[in-house]
């Protein structure tokens, strides 16, 4: 699977949840993390987590990045 595509998809999801949150972004981060847990196959989550850990997800927006870090911490 193309990691850039995963980053693109995570950013898309991030935009929706960012728009629901006018505070510090923690509601958005929870929303994104929950969405990824509910709808992404584990291998997709593993790949994007690995990407973030390896510092290779440069294009990832801040909120989805925080959400993926949250996922990483939980796994």
């Amino acid at each position: 699977m193309s990691p850039d595509k995963l980053v693109y998809m995570a950013n898309q999801i991030g935009k929706f949840f960012a728009s629901q949150d006018h505070a510090d972004g923690s509601k958005a981060v929870d929303g994104i993390a929950t969405h990824l847990r509910k709808f992404w196959d584990p291998r997709m989550r593993r790949e994007i987590v690995a990407k973030v850990r390896a510092g290779e997800a440069g294009g990832l927006d801040p909120l989805p990045r925080r959400a993926i870090e949250q996922l990483a911490a939980g796994e």
């Binding site: 196959d41 291998r43 997709m44």
Partner: peptide, 18 residues
Amino acid sequence: AEPGLRIPNMFDAAVGGS
């Protein structure tokens, strides 16, 4: 208990070898 692949993800995963 984990969700599986959706159709577009299946094609991606196929190209990726999994």
